[in-house]
Amino acid sequence: MESVTADRAAVATRRFDLAHGTVRDLNHFLHRELPGSGVTRVDVENPGGRHAIAVGIDHPVDVEVLGHGGYYLAGMNKHANITVHGNVGWGVAENMMSGTVRVKGFASEAAGATGHGGTLIIEGDASLRCGISMKGIDIVVGGSIGNYSAFMAQAGRLVVCGDAGDALGDSLYEAVIYVRGRIKSLGADAREEPMTAADLAAVAELLGRAGFPYAPSEFKRVASARSLYHWNADADQEY
């Protein structure tokens, strides 16, 4: 029985070693050959900070990136479950549609930018502009986030277990931000609001998804004051 299981696992897992192959080969497999292949898991060895690893996947599969990734890792992801055993560069899971991306290290700038759906979990810190213009994605950060995060964020939730930098949620639309630590400063039109029972339940559910052991009651809610939604003629052009 054991050898059969092992054979099945061997068939179901495909390895790409980027020390010897190209990102283009990897992505070609993920886009063109994966559907119908029976492969359920793809291991990416020696990613070496290469850009655009595992972008544009449109099929359920587990991808394990065994090291540090470069820019736009898991960009436009749909359906796939991608884990990075290291850090990532700019724009991880940019414009993600669905699925899950987990980064075990830290993420550089613009993590989850413009994401429409799915869950992005960053176990370490995320740098500046985390969740910029997010459009429905859920982002859970185990550490802290940098300045200008959630700028013009339109929909989705951003949970931050550490601190937030300057100008959090500047020009925020309907995305909601939950911060456990200190907020250095809020951006224009972002305001702190009381946590409701629905907020506590949402944070509990998102922390559960990420596996972070914090109490929802430790978090503050930041949302849009909606004062920038309408042109204010009385402002007398004084900004």
Partner: peptide
Amino acid sequence: SEFRALAHLPGIDHAKLFEPMP
């Protein structure tokens, strides 16, 4: 500028990696 330029360095797997803050 980017991690990929450091990936070949000896001992990089155990290096302390960080991005400088503004």
